[in-house]
Design a protein around this nucleic acid. Structure first.
Length: 826
RNA sequence: GCCGAAGUGGCGGAAUUGGCAGACGCGUCGGUCUCAAAAACCGAUGGGGGAAACCUCGUGCCGGUUCGACCCCGGCCUUCGGCACCA
């Protein structure tokens, strides 16, 4: 019998063409079926798909195809996060406009995605660098501006001298620029900020409404938001009316405060040193601090340094007179920029006091049994809980109780109040860059800072720019900068900063719901139909920033009444990295396997299958060429098996009627596999075990067909089950085989195969026989066998192990095991 | 340092959550087919012992709970992520 070979190239090309023509993957809201929104983090169009993309999109495609076969109305879109630095760098290097470079990259990567056979709704493709998209990014900026959530301030910002741009704190890694690794310095600039800190509490609390997110990601977000409960306490400064306010989470240690420290930038500093002998040295110290980058200065490794200001202040409760210092380890941005120094109970203060000879007094003892220790100098700071000492009326109290009482007392005397602080900073969105969405603001000498009216959006990026390293080309484009004031009509200048690309990627999932809307970013009804995203999948590197900003923007749009969703992503899966030789694949490291190469050698189905089979999705995946070949072999095995059946007519008879034990065993496996794969795909994302169980089914089908009395209908059912179950993973080969097996429609339009519970019923169950918990034997029994019957049989089988010993106890788990607990005769 | 994951054969990984450890795949070894090779197919494959039926050890380490622990508890070690002077 002549057998057609598995020509993956022809097959994949053929079906991709057909899907393209039929618009497979298209989603609309008219379906009566329940919706399902499957989303992968959209790519930056760098030019080529890498294995991380292949993994990400394969995972989501399996989910999308599975949900379609299960009867859901699936939205599975794709787009391009296409603003950003690489395009501009390429423009400088090649003198090609960023738009052209980006367009070419998108075209190339779009083809690569099509070659992977991902079932996107291509009619919903969005591209953030196109005016029809960034118009609405600007519109969203204006809504936040209108609601008082956008402001401009002069701020010392992280500056990358090489990229000539401002970096957000989160884009500074180890004191260096995230992109080019140049050491970051500071620069004062007027910058636009989003008031994300207004949402700190909600961004924190609403994490509890997301059980479908990994605990790890939620923890990272919680830490990033960094909520702390403390007290702001006032220390009177001798000879001054205005007190110093310190922030502390350990107000219970107030009696142990032996000094107060201000940040060098604290506004009080110049005043208190003015005209004193301390003025010159303190100013010299501050100057020295300014020359260090914030990163160096605030690094935990930097030695603590400080200086006495000459001033003293008074403890609000004890009245004790303590010196006022400045020090490098106090940050002006956090809390009040002033802290009380409690060396006995804070490690930083302990180090600082040791260095400068400041008093160290214990106020908390770890145990009440050590009263003698209360006046001994400690060897290290004790930061734990305990009993109060040296604290006047609070002595003897549990420190947690004292905390509350001291906070109350300060409040009643007007010397302090409870305060919650967050580590989260406002979001700096200004970028001194060309290739981004222009910030829609205008500066008028008469009217001041004026937003561009919505009717004038988009503020288009100009074409007449020259790309050189350094300065923002936008600022040099006269045609762009010169404009008229929207209020008075007089001459005005445009803002030349563009937006952080995180802005563009913080709402794209809403645009997919209504991508061609020219009157609004999206229609509320359409957005409400699709939102929330049912399953979001992407790299864990976006665990903090992208996800936090997307949550923030969604909450804002919700609050302004544009969408019902308050959280964008119902379930989140963070996929692991793709590694080669134990390290993440990367261009710089040179350990790359190119998807194009794999697809041309083995086909997209094999590439997809391997990447899903080699590891569970959230774990790192070690690339293996041999493993790819194994998956290729498996698909060929499926191919050969199915082709044999393609030559035969549809068998008569119902597989459920098959009577002999072998047939029923085969059928049981077929239906057990259906059940297993359904669970693996629907309840957890264990693609690897789903695939392995289909492999087992195929192996069994090979054996079954060689049986002398094999039932054709049972074999056929098993084979078609394998093809259907593989369809989400390997969409091309299964489509081809489904047609070859005589079916008219697409395999992807078939109903997901349900397990027949009747077929799952086993003829016998294996009972494990144990002695003292160790397996000694196993026995086959009818499923409904009674306890006594089972134990009797077990006793007989285990006789040789229990002979001469005393049976203390028999543990029986019906249908599973019998365990004899024995001891030696005494 | 803090927070979060993870440690299972030669390798990637299973074990549906306390009940047969090592599914599936890779690799290796042996065999069939072939003039030969490739492909394909069949078989073996955690360590030690034994001719064999079998015995024994075994899920990072130490202890605990339990009839029974890769799984639960306590304490360590290692690796990988994240954060790091946040008062």
């Amino acid at each position: 019998m002549k057998q057609e070979k598995y020509q993956f190239r022809d097959i994949e090309r053929k079906w991709q063409q057909k899907w393209r023509e039929s618009g497979a993957g298209r989603a609309d809201e008219k379906s009566g079926r329940p919706k399902y929104y499957a989303l992968a983090m959209f790519p930056y169009p760098s030019g080529n798909l890498h294995m991380g993309h292949v993994r990400n999109y394969s995972i989501v495609d399996v989910i999308a195809r599975f949900q379609r076969m299960r009867g859901r109305n699936v939205l599975h879109p794709i787009g391009w996060d296409s603003f950003g630095l690489p395009a501009e760098n390429a423009a400088i290097k090649n003198q090609t406009p960023p738009a052209d470079w980006t367009r070419q990259n998108i075209a190339r990567m779009r083809e690569q995605l099509r070659e992977m056979g991902i079932s996107y709704d291509w009619e919903r493709e969005v591209t953030t660098c196109q005016p029809d998209y960034y118009r609405w990014t600007q519109w969203i900026f204006l809504q936040f501006y209108r609601h008082g959530l956008v402001y401009r301030k002069k701020a010392a910002v992280n500056w990358c001298p090489s990229c000539a741009t401002v970096l957000a704190n989160e884009q500074v890694v180890d004191g260096a620029c995230e992109r080019c690794e140049t050491a970051v310095t500071k620069k004062d600039l007027e910058q636009w900020f989003f008031k994300i800190t207004d949402y700190s509490e909600r961004l924190l609390n609403d994490l509890d409404t997301l059980p479908g997110w990994p605990e790890k990601v939620k923890t990272m977000q919680r830490n990033w938001i960094g909520r702390s409960e403390g007290v702001e306490a006032k220390f009177r400064v001798e000879g001054r009316a205005e007190p110093v306010t310190v922030y502390t989470t350990r107000i219970d240690t107030l009696y142990g405060a032996s000094y107060v420290v201000l940040a060098p930038e604290h506004p009080l500093v110049p005043e208190i040193i003015s005209g004193t002998e301390f003025e010159a040295p303190v100013l010299a110290f501050i100057d020295k601090m300014k020359h260090l980058s914030e990163i160096t200065r605030t690094s935990a490794e930097t030695e603590k340094e400080g200086m006495f200001t000459g001033a003293y202040c008074l403890n609000p409760l004890s009245g004790e007179r303590v010196p006022l210092w400045i020090a490098n380890y106090v940050l002006p941005e956090y809390g009040t920029g002033a802290v009380m120094g409690v060396p006995a109970h804070d490690e930083r203060d302990f180090e600082f006091a040791g260095k400068y000879g400041l008093p160290i007094r214990r106020v908390i003892l770890s145990s009440p049994l050590l009263p003698a220790a209360k006046d001994e100098p400690p060897a290290a700071a004790y930061t734990g809980d305990g009993v109060m000492v040296n604290s006047a009326e609070f002595d003897g109290l549990d420190n947690e109780v004292a905390w509350e009482k001291m906070a109350d007392k300060l409040a009643s005397q007007g010397m302090g109040e409870r305060k919650i602080n967050y580590r989260l900073r406002d979001w700096l969105i200004s970028r001194q860059r060309y290739w981004g969405a222009p910030i829609p603001m205008v500066y008028c000498d008469k009217c001041g800072t004026v937003p561009v009216p919505e009717s004038e959006l988009p503020v288009l990026l100009p074409d007449d720019v020259v790309f050189q390293p350094g300065e923002n080309p936008l600022a040099r484009s006269e045609s762009f900068v010169r404009t008229l004031c929207p209020v008075c009509g007089g001459p005005a200048r445009r803002e030349t900063d563009t937006m952080d690309t995180f802005m563009c990627s913080s709402w794209y999932f809403l645009r997919y719901a209504d991508p061609h809307n020219a009157a609004a970013p999206f229609d509320r009804a359409r957005a409400d139909y699709w939102m929330n995203v049912d399953q979001y999948v992407g790299g864990v590197e976006h665990a903090i920033l992208h996800l936090l900003y997307a949550r923030f923007l969604t909450k804002g749009l919700h609050d302004f009444g544009y969408v019902a969703a308050d959280e964008p992503f119902q379930n989140l899966l963070t996929q692991g990295m793709v590694c080669l030789d134990g390290a993440k694949m990367s261009k710089t490291r040179g350990n790359i396997v190119s998807p194009e190469e794999i697809i041309s050698k083995y086909g997209a189905d094999t590439a997809r299958l391997f990447i899903l089979f080699a590891a569970p999705p959230e774990r790192d995946l070690e690339w293996s060429d041999k493993g790819v070949e194994g998956c290729y072999r498996f698909l060929q095995r499926v191919w050969r098996l199915a082709r044999q059946y393609a030559e035969r007519p549809q068998p008569d008879g119902n597989p459920a009627d098959a009577a002999d034990a072998r047939a029923r065993g085969m059928r049981r496996l077929t239906h057990a596999t259906r059940k297993k794969v359904t669970q693996d795909l629907g309840e957890r994302f264990n693609f690897n075990t789903a695939i392995s169980s289909v492999m087992e089914l195929v192996n069994a089908l090979y054996l079954y067909k060689e049986e002398p009395a094999s039932d054709a209908s049972v074999a056929r059912e098993g084979l078609e089950t394998a093809v259907l179950l593989l369809a989400p993973f390997a969409p091309h080969i299964t489509e081809e085989l489904w047609a070859a097996l005589g079916h008219a429609g697409s395999v992807h339009d078939e109903d997901w195969p349900a397990a027949d519970e009747a077929a799952l019923a086993a003829d016998t169950v294996t009972i494990v026989l144990q002695v003292n918990g160790k397996v000694k034997d196993r026995v086959e029994m009818p499923p409904g066998a009674g306890r006594e019957e089972t134990e009797a049989l077990a006793a007989a089988r285990l006789e040789k192990y229990t002979r001469g010993l005393t049976v203390r106890k028999v543990i029986t788990v019906p249908g599973k095991l019998v365990n004899f607990v024995v001891t030696a005769n005494s």
